[in-house]
Amino acid sequence: MRRKGNLLSLIPYYIWILFFVIAPILLIVYYSLLDLHGHFTINNYRNFLTSVYLKMTLSSFWYAFLITLFSLIISYPAAYLITKLKYKQLWLILIIIPSWINLLLKTYAFIGIFGNKGPINAFVKAIGLPNQQILFTDFAFVFVSVYIFIPFMILPIFNALDKLNPALIDASRDLGASKITTFRRVIIPLTMNGVKAGVQAVFIPALSLFMITRLIAGNRVITLGTAIEEQFLTTQNWGMGSTISVFLILFMFIIMLLTGERKKGVARNGKAK
Protein backbone atom coordinates (compact mmCIF):
# COMPACT_ATOMS: atom_id res chain seq x y z
CA MET A 1 0.00 0.00 0.00
CA ARG A 2 2.77 2.36 0.91
CA ARG A 3 4.59 1.81 -2.34
CA LYS A 4 1.52 2.49 -4.39
CA GLY A 5 0.95 5.74 -2.51
CA ASN A 6 4.49 6.86 -3.08
CA LEU A 7 4.35 6.06 -6.75
CA LEU A 8 1.17 8.12 -7.02
CA SER A 9 3.13 11.11 -5.75
CA LEU A 10 5.35 10.75 -8.80
CA ILE A 11 2.53 11.63 -11.20
CA PRO A 12 2.95 15.43 -11.16
CA TYR A 13 6.71 14.96 -11.21
CA TYR A 14 6.54 12.69 -14.24
CA ILE A 15 4.24 15.15 -15.97
CA TRP A 16 6.90 17.79 -15.34
CA ILE A 17 9.64 15.55 -16.79
CA LEU A 18 7.52 14.81 -19.82
CA PHE A 19 6.50 18.40 -20.60
CA PHE A 20 9.45 20.44 -19.39
CA VAL A 21 12.43 18.14 -19.83
CA ILE A 22 11.77 15.70 -22.66
CA ALA A 23 9.34 17.69 -24.81
CA PRO A 24 11.53 20.82 -25.01
CA ILE A 25 14.55 18.82 -26.22
CA LEU A 26 12.46 17.05 -28.85
CA LEU A 27 10.91 20.35 -29.93
CA ILE A 28 14.35 21.93 -30.35
CA VAL A 29 15.47 19.02 -32.52
CA TYR A 30 12.19 19.11 -34.49
CA TYR A 31 12.41 22.86 -35.12
CA SER A 32 16.04 22.61 -36.18
CA LEU A 33 14.74 20.62 -39.16
CA LEU A 34 12.24 23.29 -40.23
CA ASP A 35 12.78 26.29 -42.46
CA LEU A 36 11.09 29.68 -42.10
CA HIS A 37 7.89 28.41 -43.70
CA GLY A 38 7.66 25.24 -41.65
CA HIS A 39 8.89 22.84 -44.34
CA PHE A 40 11.30 20.04 -43.55
CA THR A 41 14.87 20.80 -44.53
CA ILE A 42 18.43 20.17 -43.48
CA ASN A 43 19.48 23.57 -44.75
CA ASN A 44 19.86 24.92 -41.21
CA TYR A 45 22.55 22.35 -40.54
CA ARG A 46 24.16 23.12 -43.88
CA ASN A 47 24.11 26.81 -42.93
CA PHE A 48 25.69 26.14 -39.59
CA LEU A 49 28.61 24.43 -41.30
CA THR A 50 29.36 27.49 -43.43
CA SER A 51 32.24 29.76 -42.52
CA VAL A 52 30.05 32.46 -40.94
CA TYR A 53 28.69 30.20 -38.23
CA LEU A 54 31.86 28.19 -37.79
CA LYS A 55 33.82 31.39 -37.24
CA MET A 56 31.26 32.52 -34.70
CA THR A 57 31.44 29.15 -32.93
CA LEU A 58 35.21 29.35 -32.85
CA SER A 59 35.23 32.87 -31.46
CA SER A 60 32.62 31.86 -28.88
CA PHE A 61 34.86 28.98 -27.81
CA TRP A 62 37.87 31.30 -27.71
CA TYR A 63 36.12 33.76 -25.39
CA ALA A 64 34.79 30.94 -23.21
CA PHE A 65 38.33 29.54 -23.03
CA LEU A 66 39.77 32.92 -21.99
CA ILE A 67 37.04 33.45 -19.40
CA THR A 68 37.55 29.96 -17.95
CA LEU A 69 41.34 30.33 -17.93
CA PHE A 70 41.35 33.68 -16.11
CA SER A 71 38.69 32.49 -13.66
CA LEU A 72 40.86 29.48 -12.88
CA ILE A 73 44.06 31.51 -12.50
CA ILE A 74 42.36 33.84 -10.03
CA SER A 75 40.25 31.25 -8.22
CA TYR A 76 42.74 28.46 -7.54
CA PRO A 77 45.07 30.52 -5.31
CA ALA A 78 42.09 32.22 -3.69
CA ALA A 79 40.44 28.88 -2.86
CA TYR A 80 43.77 27.55 -1.60
CA LEU A 81 44.31 30.53 0.68
CA ILE A 82 40.76 30.39 2.03
CA THR A 83 41.25 26.79 3.17
CA LYS A 84 44.13 28.12 5.29
CA LEU A 85 41.98 30.71 7.06
CA LYS A 86 40.62 30.26 10.54
CA TYR A 87 36.93 30.77 9.78
CA LYS A 88 37.07 29.24 6.32
CA GLN A 89 33.37 28.33 6.07
CA LEU A 90 32.38 31.89 6.86
CA TRP A 91 34.81 33.27 4.26
CA LEU A 92 33.41 30.82 1.76
CA ILE A 93 29.90 32.13 2.38
CA LEU A 94 31.22 35.62 1.76
CA ILE A 95 32.56 34.42 -1.59
CA ILE A 96 29.22 32.84 -2.47
CA ILE A 97 26.96 35.77 -1.53
CA PRO A 98 27.84 37.87 -4.60
CA SER A 99 26.84 34.95 -6.81
CA TRP A 100 23.31 35.24 -5.36
CA ILE A 101 22.99 38.87 -6.38
CA ASN A 102 21.12 39.28 -9.62
CA LEU A 103 23.48 38.85 -12.57
CA LEU A 104 21.95 41.81 -14.31
CA LEU A 105 22.68 44.20 -11.48
CA LYS A 106 26.34 43.22 -11.38
CA THR A 107 26.58 43.73 -15.10
CA TYR A 108 24.81 47.06 -14.86
CA ALA A 109 27.29 48.18 -12.19
CA PHE A 110 30.11 47.75 -14.67
CA ILE A 111 28.41 50.05 -17.15
CA GLY A 112 28.97 52.74 -14.54
CA ILE A 113 32.43 51.60 -13.46
CA PHE A 114 33.84 51.25 -16.97
CA GLY A 115 31.98 54.28 -18.33
CA ASN A 116 33.73 57.30 -19.78
CA LYS A 117 33.32 59.19 -16.52
CA GLY A 118 33.50 56.16 -14.25
CA PRO A 119 36.02 55.59 -11.45
CA ILE A 120 38.47 53.70 -13.68
CA ASN A 121 38.67 56.58 -16.12
CA ALA A 122 38.88 59.06 -13.24
CA PHE A 123 41.92 57.12 -12.04
CA VAL A 124 43.41 57.02 -15.55
CA LYS A 125 42.99 60.78 -15.77
CA ALA A 126 44.50 61.28 -12.32
CA ILE A 127 47.73 59.63 -13.38
CA GLY A 128 47.82 61.84 -16.45
CA LEU A 129 46.69 59.51 -19.23
CA PRO A 130 44.03 60.31 -21.84
CA ASN A 131 40.49 58.98 -21.42
CA GLN A 132 40.20 55.28 -22.28
CA GLN A 133 37.30 53.61 -24.01
CA ILE A 134 36.80 50.56 -21.77
CA LEU A 135 33.14 49.78 -22.23
CA PHE A 136 32.33 47.89 -25.44
CA THR A 137 35.76 46.27 -25.68
CA ASP A 138 36.81 42.62 -25.51
CA PHE A 139 38.65 43.38 -22.30
CA ALA A 140 35.50 44.63 -20.59
CA PHE A 141 33.55 41.58 -21.74
CA VAL A 142 36.13 39.10 -20.45
CA PHE A 143 36.62 41.02 -17.20
CA VAL A 144 32.93 41.18 -16.33
CA SER A 145 32.39 37.53 -17.25
CA VAL A 146 35.34 36.44 -15.12
CA TYR A 147 34.01 38.58 -12.29
CA ILE A 148 30.66 36.83 -12.50
CA PHE A 149 32.08 33.30 -12.72
CA ILE A 150 34.75 33.51 -10.00
CA PRO A 151 32.47 32.24 -7.17
CA PHE A 152 31.40 29.27 -9.30
CA MET A 153 35.04 28.37 -9.86
CA ILE A 154 36.18 28.89 -6.28
CA LEU A 155 33.45 26.71 -4.74
CA PRO A 156 34.33 23.30 -6.26
CA ILE A 157 38.07 23.94 -5.96
CA PHE A 158 37.64 24.90 -2.32
CA ASN A 159 35.68 21.70 -1.68
CA ALA A 160 38.38 19.58 -3.32
CA LEU A 161 41.18 21.31 -1.39
CA ASP A 162 39.23 21.06 1.84
CA LYS A 163 38.81 17.31 1.45
CA LEU A 164 42.52 16.85 0.82
CA ASN A 165 44.13 14.88 3.61
CA PRO A 166 46.82 17.12 5.17
CA ALA A 167 48.82 14.01 6.07
CA LEU A 168 49.60 13.61 2.36
CA ILE A 169 51.15 17.06 2.24
CA ASP A 170 53.13 16.42 5.41
CA ALA A 171 54.32 13.11 3.99
CA SER A 172 55.46 14.76 0.81
CA ARG A 173 57.34 17.42 2.78
CA ASP A 174 58.90 14.80 5.04
CA LEU A 175 60.09 12.87 2.03
CA GLY A 176 62.01 15.93 0.96
CA ALA A 177 59.76 17.49 -1.68
CA SER A 178 59.98 21.24 -1.86
CA LYS A 179 56.90 23.38 -1.42
CA ILE A 180 56.58 23.81 -5.16
CA THR A 181 57.05 20.12 -5.91
CA THR A 182 54.46 19.23 -3.29
CA PHE A 183 52.06 21.68 -4.84
CA ARG A 184 52.71 20.46 -8.39
CA ARG A 185 52.88 16.72 -7.76
CA VAL A 186 50.52 16.24 -4.82
CA ILE A 187 48.04 19.07 -4.35
CA ILE A 188 47.19 19.81 -7.98
CA PRO A 189 46.65 16.18 -9.11
CA LEU A 190 44.52 15.44 -6.05
CA THR A 191 42.30 18.48 -6.57
CA MET A 192 41.92 17.95 -10.32
CA ASN A 193 38.28 16.88 -9.90
CA GLY A 194 37.47 20.21 -8.28
CA VAL A 195 39.15 22.05 -11.13
CA LYS A 196 37.22 19.99 -13.66
CA ALA A 197 33.93 20.71 -11.91
CA GLY A 198 34.81 24.41 -11.88
CA VAL A 199 35.73 24.41 -15.56
CA GLN A 200 32.43 22.72 -16.33
CA ALA A 201 30.54 25.28 -14.26
CA VAL A 202 32.17 28.17 -16.10
CA PHE A 203 32.82 27.04 -19.66
CA ILE A 204 29.30 25.98 -20.61
CA PRO A 205 27.57 29.15 -19.30
CA ALA A 206 30.35 31.23 -20.87
CA LEU A 207 29.49 29.75 -24.27
CA SER A 208 25.88 30.75 -23.86
CA LEU A 209 26.17 34.24 -22.37
CA PHE A 210 24.01 36.71 -24.16
CA MET A 211 23.06 39.52 -21.85
CA ILE A 212 26.61 40.57 -20.96
CA THR A 213 27.59 40.60 -24.63
CA ARG A 214 24.82 43.09 -25.32
CA LEU A 215 25.32 45.36 -22.32
CA ILE A 216 29.10 45.30 -21.92
CA ALA A 217 30.50 44.26 -25.27
CA GLY A 218 27.94 46.26 -27.24
CA ASN A 219 27.31 43.57 -29.88
CA ARG A 220 31.03 43.29 -30.64
CA VAL A 221 31.21 39.80 -29.24
CA ILE A 222 28.81 37.19 -30.56
CA THR A 223 28.62 34.01 -28.54
CA LEU A 224 26.49 30.97 -29.30
CA GLY A 225 24.02 32.29 -26.74
CA THR A 226 23.78 35.67 -28.44
CA ALA A 227 23.23 33.98 -31.78
CA ILE A 228 20.42 31.84 -30.40
CA GLU A 229 18.74 34.83 -28.80
CA GLU A 230 19.02 36.83 -32.00
CA GLN A 231 17.57 34.05 -34.17
CA PHE A 232 14.66 33.47 -31.80
CA LEU A 233 13.73 36.98 -30.76
CA THR A 234 15.03 39.34 -33.45
CA THR A 235 15.19 37.48 -36.74
CA GLN A 236 12.36 35.14 -35.71
CA ASN A 237 14.12 32.30 -37.48
CA TRP A 238 13.37 29.59 -34.94
CA GLY A 239 14.73 26.86 -37.20
CA MET A 240 18.21 28.32 -37.30
CA GLY A 241 18.05 29.22 -33.62
CA SER A 242 17.14 25.62 -32.79
CA THR A 243 20.00 24.33 -34.94
CA ILE A 244 22.50 26.44 -33.03
CA SER A 245 20.88 25.19 -29.81
CA VAL A 246 21.32 21.58 -30.93
CA PHE A 247 25.02 22.24 -31.47
CA LEU A 248 25.30 24.02 -28.13
CA ILE A 249 23.72 20.98 -26.44
CA LEU A 250 26.20 18.71 -28.26
CA PHE A 251 29.14 20.85 -27.16
CA MET A 252 27.78 20.78 -23.65
CA PHE A 253 27.75 16.98 -23.63
CA ILE A 254 31.26 16.79 -25.03
CA ILE A 255 32.54 19.19 -22.37
CA MET A 256 30.77 17.26 -19.64
CA LEU A 257 32.31 14.02 -20.87
CA LEU A 258 35.76 15.60 -20.95
CA THR A 259 35.47 17.15 -17.50
CA GLY A 260 33.39 14.42 -15.89
CA GLU A 261 34.76 12.81 -12.74
CA ARG A 262 36.73 9.72 -13.48
CA LYS A 263 36.57 8.04 -10.13
CA LYS A 264 38.26 4.87 -11.32
CA GLY A 265 41.31 6.69 -12.60
CA VAL A 266 41.75 8.61 -9.40
CA ALA A 267 41.49 5.51 -7.28
CA ARG A 268 44.08 3.79 -9.42
CA ASN A 269 46.43 6.75 -9.17
CA GLY A 270 45.96 6.83 -5.46
CA LYS A 271 46.84 3.16 -5.11
CA ALA A 272 49.81 3.33 -7.45
CA LYS A 273 51.37 6.11 -5.45
Binding site: F19, F20, A23, P24, I25, L27, I28, Y31, I204, P205, L207, S208, F210, L224, G225, I228, E229, F232, W238, G241, S242, S245, L248, I249, M252, M256
Partner: peptide, 15 residues
Protein backbone atom coordinates in the same frame (compact mmCIF):
# COMPACT_ATOMS: atom_id res chain seq x y z
CA UNK B 1 20.18 22.28 -13.95
CA UNK B 2 23.07 21.84 -16.35
CA UNK B 3 21.36 23.27 -19.44
CA UNK B 4 22.31 26.82 -20.39
CA UNK B 5 19.54 29.35 -19.72
CA UNK B 6 19.29 30.34 -23.36
CA UNK B 7 18.36 26.81 -24.35
CA UNK B 8 15.81 26.47 -21.56
CA UNK B 9 14.32 29.80 -22.61
CA UNK B 10 14.26 29.03 -26.32
CA UNK B 11 12.81 25.54 -25.91
CA UNK B 12 10.14 26.76 -23.46
CA UNK B 13 9.23 29.48 -25.94
CA UNK B 14 8.61 26.83 -28.59
CA UNK B 15 6.73 24.68 -26.07
Amino acid sequence: IVSPDVIIGASFLIL
